[in-house]
Design a protein around this nucleic acid. Structure first.
Length: 583
RNA sequence: GCGCCCGUAGCUCAGCUGGAUAGAGCAACGGACUUCUAAUCCGUAGGCCACAGGUUCGAAUCCUGUCGGGCGCACCA
């Protein structure tokens, strides 16, 4: 429980009490009340808008409400003083000892400081990556992969029961193309001259070993046979090989999924029929003809009757086809079954992480979810914008056709897992992101990964130095948390502690908003305050962490900066970045 | 033509789901190194939050419209 929640409870009790005393009306709705740190620290430690929010309900002036509430707040032990300011803000200043004692709390909780149970163990499914198994992962996939992974960890941290899932698109036409491409490499492995890879097949070298493996497994048994005899086997073989490749790629970023869900199984098991029956039952399927899209009419447009899902009932622009003209299922039909399956598995909340180029697909899937859950909106689709790769400011040219694209592995090999992960999380997911090789490997403040890592390493450097200076000093967590915290009186120290008091709120809001980048920003800010305090020690020797002739004070300072390092480590762990202790 | 996302300092972006005087970094200028790693810090300067209305005690944030940019727009996946 963080301190702001504590005061939320206190406010609740105060309002009830004032209601009983007839100072305020009874049964006031506190829904829009906020309890947060004021933007300007000179206004105190905790600020609430309660008086302004209640003014209409209570039919009283904000100032009058504020005076009543402030008088009650002032009775709380931890409160130093209460002010009413501006249009009716109530500002609480806590006793300095309360601020100081936060350090003890943080040290006692260590990595658990900031953890919460707002998720209430709700079963949530986070689906991410879900790349077609036709080749290695490239840069574009990177961002969604890292976003989904960090978001999952973040949600776990605040008490959700998270399942990380990958949907394998192993049923479509692109898998036939993959199989044919692999078969060509198979022929090549058996000594046949295959010449140039024909247009429309995958040209990448990564299929060469697949061809060789096929040759090993089947010898020449598939050679010179009609496609119908080998296609199914080669499809399976190549898909498995590609998934191994993709899993290995993900491994380099330390991304692991709990479930790999095959689209093909949906077709085979009859799940699609089952899901669509459900929609049929609700009267949401019909046979109809779609109008051509306005503005950009395709040249080969032809009218044809199709089985359609009435997604317009749920806010979509047009109804969507679930069957192709040849009678087979569309990709969308399988996706309906897939999301139905998630619901059946008991997920009451789901997140799909997609590339922004799939934005046009969002409404129809949301429509499906609403149709299947009676309009409960339990699906949240998060779109990740493009990543622009740069080298010293100039864009890296990529061409899919020639196969000259930068893979995820290339990037990880060049700059390292931690850098890739952190940088990908330094932007909001729906804003595009520049990834400049030169900048992200720089060892300077320009590079946020380095800056945050350095703060963490610096703390550990001091701990090492301190132990050298005081060989008998006990720097265990127990000893640190028992240190005298009343020595913190400088504005920089107190401001640092106040900043740390905000950590639980940040974690919570980042999780609720599903925006892991907020963690990265918080860490940068905390690191910045820490570096500032460090430098204050250059001018004022008394503010140094290690005070040579004063072991007790040194211990207190070590306690303070250890608290900082715990939070940085916790935050980096959520982002999947290793907190280093030495650089 | 329609839908979604975006427009904040010269540049790259935050802004805690409606709060008080809008914040960082880079670039510019001026300062701090016999150091607990200056791999850092401090200060100065820089703004009609694209534009116009609306909602209310209060708007960068919510609603409508306009302008500008990105993505997408029948059976592909």
């Amino acid at each position: 429980m963080n301190i702001f929640d504590t005061y939320a409870k206190s406010l609740n009790m105060i309002i009830t009490k004032l209601g009983e005393e007839d100072a305020l009306p009874k049964g006031l709705d506190l829904k829009n009340v906020t309890i947060e740190p004021p933007r300007d620290a000179s206004h105190g430690d905790i600020s609430t808008n309660i008086a302004m929010v209640l003014t209409k309900q209570a039919r009283m002036k904000p100032r009058d409400i504020a005076d009543f509430v402030a008088a009650e707040l002032a009775k709380i032990d931890d409160v130093e003083k209460v002010d009413v300011a501006g249009p009716g803000f109530i500002n609480i200043t806590l006793k300095q000892s309360v601020i100081q004692s936060q350090v003890t709390d943080i040290l006692n909780l260590k990595g658990k400081y900031g953890r919460s149970d707002i998720g209430g163990s709700e079963k949530i499914n986070v689906e991410y990556v879900s790349v077609n198994p036709t080749g290695p992962l490239h840069v574009g996939h990177c961002r969604g992969a890292i976003f989904g992974d960090a978001l999952s960890t973040l949600l776990e941290y605040v008490g959700y029961d998270v399942t990380r899932e990958y949907y394998i698109n192993d049923a479509g036409g692109q898998i036939d193309v993959l199989a044919r491409s692999a078969y060509l490499r198979y022929e090549e492995a058996l000594g046949k001259d295959i010449g140039k890879i024909p247009e429309g097949l995958y040209p990448g070298d990564y299929l060469v070993p697949v061809g060789q493996a096929l040759a090993e497994k089947y010898s020449d048994a598939l050679l010179d046979k009609p496609e119908s005899e080998w296609l199914s086997d080669v499809r399976q073989f190549a898909t498995d090989a590609m998934m191994d490749l993709i899993r290995a790629d993900l491994e380099t970023l330390e991304i692991k999924h709990d479930v790999f869900f095959s689209e093909l199984t949906l077709h085979k098991s009859g799940q699609i029929d089952k899901a669509l029956e459900k929609l049929e039952h609700k009267g949401l399927l019909y046979t109809g003809v779609l109008a051509p899209p306005k503005g950009t009419k395709p040249d080969d447009w032809e009218e044809r009757p199709q089985t359609l899902f009435k997604s317009t009932d749920f806010g979509d622009d047009v109804d969507r086809a679930v069957k192709k003209s040849d009678g087979s299922w569309t990709y969308f039909a399988a996706d309906i079954a897939y999301h139905y399956d998630k619901i059946e598995r008991g997920f009451t909340s789901m997140v799909d992480v997609w590339g922004a180029d799939h934005g046009g697909y969002v409404k129809r899937v949301e429509a499906v979810i609403e149709a299947l859950t009676d309009k409960k909106n339990v699906l949240d689709v998060r779109l990740c914008q493009m990543v622009k790769l740069l080298r010293d400011g100039t864009p890296v040219k990529m061409s899919k056709r020639s196969g000259a694209f930068v893979t995820m592995r290339d990037i990880v090999d060049e700059v390292g897992k931690d850098v890739v992960r952190f940088i990908m999380l330094t932007r909001k997911n729906d804003a595009s992101l520049d990834f400049d090789f030169a900048r992200v490997t720089e060892q300077s403040k320009d590079n946020p990964v380095f800056y945050v890592q350095y703060a963490h390493a610096r703390v550990h450097s001091v701990l090492r130095k301190a132990q050298a200076a005081f060989p008998d000093m006990d720097v265990s967590t127990a000893a640190l948390s028992a240190a005298d915290m009343t020595v913190f009186s400088d504005s920089s120290e107190l401001s640092l502690i106040r900043n740390m008091m905000n950590w639980p709120r940040f974690v919570e809001s980042a999780a609720l908003a599903r925006e892991p980048h907020r963690i990265a920003y918080y860490l940068f800010d905390l690191a910045s305050e820490f570096h500032a305090l460090w430098n204050k020690g250059n001018d004022n020797l008394d503010l140094r962490f290690i005070i040579e002739d004063d072991m007790d004070k040194t211990l207190s300072r070590l306690a303070l900066i250890s608290a900082v390092s715990h939070i940085i480590a916790t935050g980096l762990n959520i982002l999947g970045v290793e907190p280093v202790t030495e650089m």
